[in-house]
């Protein structure tokens, strides 16, 4: 027994070190998760069954009402989208004049959260799309409002998303008002981000919107992340105490959007996709007049000024 327990301890420690330092164990993990994924689906069953039942046995009037509401919302959103397309085109033209490169559109896939509780001391969720849908490790994940996190483990049909509030997560952001760049660190609490690297005289206020800066190369630039909730500067300290609240509904949302970024450096490569084509939503770049030219123009100029997306 002694020999066995010592062997178990040594193997566990070795596994932990390898898993923490390198990422060679991803294949082992995804193989094992094929075995455990039935458990995930059984755990998710009560909630998905109750959702299905409430949809199936909904009254006709309620469905009609809901349909009307959605229709109205859709019209509103489309109207905003029209404006956005024009603004985007204008933005691209201006950026062309400034000779700066900028990515145009992203490809987005909607995935649903699987209702299971993972480790309560890590901020992570499980989604129902995996490598069979082209999901890759490190992929950015959004919800309808803002950035949620990034994919850390990919299995065949599911993947694990690390939320931006996890204590091991750091996200390069910039203040939308003045372009001030910094890093937003997770705190381990679901509603709080920490900005530890801002000097006392930094131009930052309560209510400022933080957007992704695109530095670091994982997250596409320009997506909202969080709103500043408190700024305290103590004269004796080097850095100000700045905290922010994520704009994404990290603890409430049921759907997550997986994003494929199209940088100016790479051509649009259709990924091997599952046939659920209706879920693939392309951004407005196809419908934007002039966007294609500007993208290729930006791509050719990117060599001279690669700062934006590096």
């Amino acid at each position: 027994m002694i020999v066995r327990v010592i062997a178990a301890i040594v193997i566990s420690l070795a596994l932990m070190v390898i898993d923490h330092r390198q990422h060679h164990l991803e294949t082992v993990r995804s193989l094992l998760s094929v075995i455990v994924s039935p458990l995930h689906f059984i755990a998710d069953l009560p909630l998905s069954a109750s959702n299905w039942l409430s949809e199936t046995f909904a009254t006709r009037s309620r469905l009609l009402q809901e349909n009307q509401d959605l229709h109205r919302e859709n019209i509103l959103l489309q109207a905003q989208q029209q404006k956005l397309a024009a603004l985007e085109a204008e933005n691209m033209r201006l950026r062309d004049l400034l000779e700066s490169s900028f990515k145009v559109g992203d490809r987005v896939l909607i995935s649903e959260l699987i209702a299971v509780d993972l480790d309560p001391f890590k901020q992570q969720v499980l989604i129902n799309k995996g490598s069979s849908s082209g999901v890759y490790s490190g992929q950015p994940v959004l919800d309808a409002n803002a950035v949620m996190g990034q994919v850390i483990h990919v299995n065949r049909f599911t993947s694990t998303v690390l939320l931006i509030t996890d204590a091991s997560h750091a996200l390069p952001v910039q203040v939308n008002r003045n372009g001030l760049r910094t890093v937003a660190m997770g705190t381990g609490k679901i509603g709080e981000l920490d900005l530890p690297h801002l000097p006392n005289n930094a131009d930052i206020q309560v209510g400022d919107l933080l957007v992704t800066s695109g530095l670091g190369g994982r997250f596409p630039p320009g997506y909202p992340v969080a709103e500043i909730t408190s700024v305290h500067s103590e004269p004796g300290q080097h850095f100000a105490n700045v905290t922010a609240r994520p704009t994404a509904h990290l603890d409430r949302t049921r759907e997550a959007l997986l994003v494929w970024t199209l940088t100016p450096f790479e051509e649009y490569q259709p990924q091997p996709f599952a046939p659920d084509e209706e879920e693939v939503v392309t951004d407005s770049e196809a419908g934007t007049p002039g966007a294609e030219e500007s993208e290729s123009a930006a791509g050719s100029q990117a060599v001279t000024e690669p700062g934006e997306t590096q």
């Binding site: 178990a8 301890i9 193997i11 566990s12 420690l13 070795a14 596994l15 932990m16 390898i18 898993d19 923490h20 164990l25 082992v28 993990r29 094992l32 998760s33 075995i35 455990v36 458990l39 995930h40 993972l118 480790d119 890590k122 992570q124 499980l126 850390i152 483990h153 694990t160």
Partner: peptide
């Protein structure tokens, strides 16, 4: 560990 997404080996240990 695989089920809850912790470090591989944490619960095993």
């Amino acid at each position: 560990d695989v089920l809850t997404g912790t470090l591989l080996g944490q619960h095993a240990l």
